[in-house]
Every structure is written in C-alpha cells, then in structure tokens.
Amino acid sequence: MLGLPPVAVAPAGPVDDPLTPSDAADDADTVLEQILHARLRQSRAVDPVFARELAERVGALVARGGKRLRTAFALCGWRAAGGSGDATAVLRTGAALELLQACALAHDDVMDGSLMRRGGPALHVELARAHWAGGMHGSAETFGTSSAVLAGDLALAWADDLLTETALDTPHGPRLHEEWRAMRTEMVAGQYRDLRAQATRSSRVDEALDIATLKSALYTVARPLALGGALAGAGDRTLDALRAAGRCAGLAFQLRDDLLGAFGDPALTGKPAGDDLRSRKLTYLLAIALQLADTAGDHHAAATLAPDADTRSEHAVERVRAVMERTGAREVVEAKIVELTTLSLGHFARTGAHPAVRDEFAALVERASGVAPRRAEEVA
C-alpha cells in the first residue's frame, strides 16, 4: 500500500531559478503518488482481489523507481521551449512516462527471463511466488508470466488514460498526443527488433545501435524532451533540436546501461550483472567487441563471443567480460558515450534555451550517462 496522502504541487520557478533535480524528483513523486492513489481506488471498486494481487503490485513497482529522469527531461524540454509557471501538466506527463516505463519493465523482464528489478524480485517472479505461497493449482511459472503480462497491460492503460486526460486539458494536446503515439510505436518496434536479433543471432553494430535507439534512447530522453516542448507550444525547429539532443543523450544512457549490465555491481544497479552476456543479447558493447576481435584476428575472442558460444555458466560470463576488456570494446563504448554527450549538448543549444536551462540539461545528461559533458557554453 502507498502511504502518502495527496499533496498540492508547487508551481515551477522562473527560468533564472530552475528546479533542481531533487526538486523535480520530489514534485514528480508527489504527482505520481496522487495518481496511483486514484488508480488503486478505482481498481478496488472494480474488484478487490484484482486490486490487491495485481494493481497494488503495479503501484509498488512504479513507486520504488528512483531517478525520475524521464520527468526531469520533460521538464527540461518544457523550460527550453519557454515554459514557466505552473508545471502540473508536465509533471502529469512525466507520471504517464513512469507508468509506461513500468509496462516496459514488466514485459521486458518476462521476455528476458530476468529475476530482479529495482532491487527486488521481478514482477513475474513475485507473482509466481504468490501462486506457490497461496497453494494454487497449475504451474506457478505460467501464472507468474501471464499475470505479469496483464500487469504491464494495466500500467500501459493507466499511462494512456493519464496522457489523454492531460492532452484534453491543454491547448497543445494534439502535438502532445502525436509525440506520445510515436513513442509507443517506437518502443514496440525496438522490443521486437531486440527479440529478432536474438533469434537471428545477429552481431551487427548498426543493428545494435538501431535497437538501442528504438528501444531505449527515444523513449528515455528524446520523446520526454519533445513532450515537454510540446506542452510549451514549441515550434518544429525547437522540437527537432530537442529530439536530436535527446536521441544522442538517450543513446549514451543506453550504452552506459549496457556497461553496467556487463560490469556493474548488482547492489548498486538493483539488477543482476551478466544477464545480457548470459543470454547473448545484442548490445553495442557485444557487437563492437566482436568487430574488434575479427579485425585483430583474435580467433579466441571471436569464438568466445560467437553466436553459438555457450555463455550460460558464470565462468563463461567471466570469459566474455575478459574478452570485452582485452579487445578494447569497453574503452570504445566509453569513448562513444563521451562523443554522444557532447553532441547532445550541441543539439540542445540550437533550441535557444536560457543558459541556466542548458546547464540543467547538461547536469541531467551527466546523471543519465555517467559522463560530465562540456558545459553548454563550450559547445554552443
């Protein structure tokens, strides 16, 4: 159960007094808390069993998310386009993004067979355990998987409802909904390309970048920026600049996530390290490592990374990590992240945003990518 009562949201400050990341996260959590309370009340009115066993788990997954980066980027896009004053519509759009993220996580964990999410059991694992603990009949695994699909669908329905309500309440609703509609299709396309790449055992660098862009970069940064810009009535040039900046920053974010997935500490990331390596998921890191191995004639490294290599054991995963270090792939990905963050600031400067907002964007890019890019005035 979520415990906070609904609270009023303070308007955002003027351009020369920007919201700090912690302010944005606090305001986003406040609005999200209000929305989850309302959705859970509605769910209990529909059916108390469904509400207790499924809807409340969706709410808990959303509530235990941390950085609220998508909301912060939406606010930054809004401010870049001249938005000021009451930020409620932007925060509600950010809450819709968080609900959409919950849908993506629930479904992605089912497809990848991931066991942990945000420091706790993945939703399908938690639901399977509830099946077993409740003495239900049939397969606990099937129950958990099927219920997690429904949980993701519920989060998506809540996200769409919220975005639609917000769009209907603003004069910029059609443009807002246009960005949202495009983002949802991109997410599905990216997820499908990810599944397809695993089925075809692809190792292509360009395909890895396409998947990372569609599946993560666009809906993590590019579309949130554009959604915020749309709410401020941004024109096409400003929206194009926001999308370009977000595409680069979002790709840097995904490449950092790939590195954390391979080399990160589960205690800090909240998910197991090595899952992508174990399943040989096509990432830019993997594709670059194989390309470098082939170029160098390193047959041992190429065999370790090959599509038919057995990477299921922990020892095999350690061999893959060692090869990624030895070929220089990890360094190449780090350099690519730096390049992308610098490009993102250059694109953002084209919006004509106030220097304080440009610095705000730079700080967000650093949080997302783990790299401190050059300050906005240096890449203008």
Rank of each mutant, 00 (worst) to 15 (best):
A55Y: 00
A96I: 01
P121V: 01
V58Q: 03
A104F: 12
G119W: 09
R52L: 12
Q42I: 00
L91P: 10
S43R: 08
A148R: 02
G85K: 06
G138W: 11
S114R: 05
P48N: 00
L91A: 05
D112Q: 06
A55I: 06
A72Q: 14
S147T: 15
C76F: 08
V90L: 11
S114F: 01
E126G: 05
R68K: 08
H137K: 12
R64N: 11
H131D: 05
R41D: 15
S43A: 15
L40F: 09
E98W: 10
A63R: 15
A72C: 05
R64K: 14
M116T: 03
V125R: 12
L105S: 02
T93A: 15
M111K: 01
R52V: 04
C76R: 10
G65M: 11
G152I: 08
A104I: 12
F73W: 09
A60R: 14
S139A: 04
W132H: 15
E126K: 09
L61W: 04
L36R: 07
L91E: 06
T145S: 06
L61R: 02
L91C: 05
D86W: 12
W78F: 05
L99D: 07
Q42S: 13
A60L: 08
A72E: 11
A102C: 15
F50K: 07
D108H: 14
L127K: 02
E56N: 01
A72G: 05
V62Y: 03
H137T: 14
A87Q: 12
L115T: 10
L61Q: 13
R57H: 14
F50W: 15
A55R: 03
G77S: 05
H137C: 08
A87P: 14
A133W: 11
S147C: 11
R118I: 09
G77L: 05
L100P: 01
